[in-house]
Amino acid sequence: MTNQSQRIITAIVLIPSLIFFIIYSSDLVFFIGLLALILVAAYEFSKLIDKAGYKNLKLPTILGSVLIPFSFYIERVDVFLFSVFIISFLSLVVKLFGSKPLDDTYRTVGFTFLNVFYVPFYFSFVQLLKNINYHYIFYLLVIIWASDTFAYFFGIKFGKHRLYEIISPKKSIEGLIAGLVGALLVGLAYSIIFLKLSIVHTLISSFLVAGAGVVGDLVESMFKRKASVKDSGNLFPGHGGMLDRIDSLLFGAPVLYFYVEMFIL
C-alpha cells in the first residue's frame, strides 16, 4: 500500500470519529480525550528531544501535561499559576537532587520547560475553544486542513521557489500562497454556514490561523530535522505521529482563541 493510500484510509477512519467526538462528547469526556492526545504528543516530543541528544525530566513533564490542561478545563487562573509553579519548582528540585546535577544542567531544565509549554500549554487552547462553542474547533480544523491541502497539491504542481529549504525542503512560496487562499475560502464558507461571523472577522481570523499553522508546521519540522527523523512517531499509518497531526493546530488554536476573545465575543 502506498503512503498516499494509507493517508486516505486513515483520514476516512479518523475524521468521522473526530467529528462525532467533538459534537457529542460531554465536557468531561472531551477533556479526557484531549488530555490523552496531549500526553501522547508530549511523549513523542520527549523522544525527539532524546534523539537530538538532549534530556528532559519526565516527572515535571507528565505532571505539567496533566495540570495545565486541567486548569484550562476548569478555567481557573489560580490553578494555572499553581501548575506553572509546581512544574518549575519540580524541574529545579529534581535536577538539583538527581544523580548528575551538573550534567547539562541548563539544557535539561530548559528542555523540560519547552516540552511542557510547547505541547500541553499551546494545545490546551483547544479546550477553551470548546468551552466557547465547538464550532470554533471545526473552524480551526477546516482552516488548517484547507491550508495544508491547497498548499500540498498546488505546491507539487507549481512550486518553484523554496519557502524555507533548510527546515522544510518541499515547501514552496507558491504552495504557501495557495494554502492561504484556500484557507480564506474554506474559512469563509464555514463561517457563513455555521458561525455567522462578519466577512472582515472571518477573513482576518482565517488568515491569522492559517499563517500560525504554517509557522507551527515549520517549528515541528525544525525539531524533527534537529533530531534527524522524518516523523514524530508512527501512530497513524501514512500520517506519522500525534505531534505530526497537531503541529499546525498548536499555533493555530491560541491565535484563534485570542482573536475570538478580543475581537468577536
Rank of each mutant, 00 (worst) to 15 (best):
M1L: 14
N3H: 05
Q4C: 12
T10H: 14
T10Y: 09
I12V: 15
L14W: 13
L14M: 15
L14C: 15
I15P: 01
S17I: 15
I23A: 06
I23N: 06
Y24R: 06
L28Y: 08
L28K: 12
I32A: 07
G33Q: 03
I38F: 14
I38R: 06
L39Q: 09
V40Y: 10
V40L: 09
V40C: 08
A41R: 10
Y43V: 06
E44N: 10
F45G: 04
K47A: 10
K47R: 03
D50I: 15
K55R: 04
K55H: 07
N56E: 07
L59W: 14
L59C: 14
P60G: 14
P69R: 10
P69M: 13
F70M: 12
F72K: 03
Y73L: 06
R76L: 05
V79N: 00
F80S: 11
L81T: 02
I86Q: 01
S88K: 00
L90P: 04
S91P: 04
L92K: 02
V94A: 13
K95G: 08
F97A: 13
G98Y: 12
G98H: 09
K100E: 03
L102E: 05
D103W: 08
D103M: 12
D104A: 15
T105P: 04
T105C: 09
R107N: 07
G110F: 14
T112K: 02
T112V: 06
F117C: 06
F121H: 00
F123C: 03
V126L: 15
V126K: 01
L129D: 00
K130I: 09
K130M: 12
N131R: 07
I132M: 14
Y134F: 15
Y136L: 04
Y136Q: 01
L141K: 01
I143Q: 04
A146V: 06
D148C: 15
F153K: 07
F154K: 02
G155E: 04
G155C: 09
I156Y: 11
F158W: 10
K160F: 07
R162Q: 04
L163P: 01
E165L: 13
I167D: 02
K170T: 11
K171C: 05
K171V: 02
S172C: 11
E174M: 13
E174C: 13
L176E: 02
G187Y: 02
G187R: 07
S191W: 00
I192C: 05
K196Y: 01
L197D: 02
L197Y: 00
I199M: 06
V200A: 15
S206V: 14
S206Y: 06
S206G: 14
F207N: 03
A210N: 07
A212I: 05
V215N: 01
V215P: 01
D217T: 09
L218N: 08
E220Q: 15
M222Q: 07
F223G: 03
A227W: 00
V229R: 10
V229K: 10
G233L: 06
N234I: 05
N234V: 09
L235P: 03
P237Y: 06
G238M: 06
G240P: 05
G241Y: 08
L243E: 01
D244P: 12
D247G: 13
L249M: 14
L250I: 10
F251Q: 02
G252C: 05
P254N: 07
V255T: 11
V255E: 01
Y257R: 00
V260K: 03
F263Q: 00
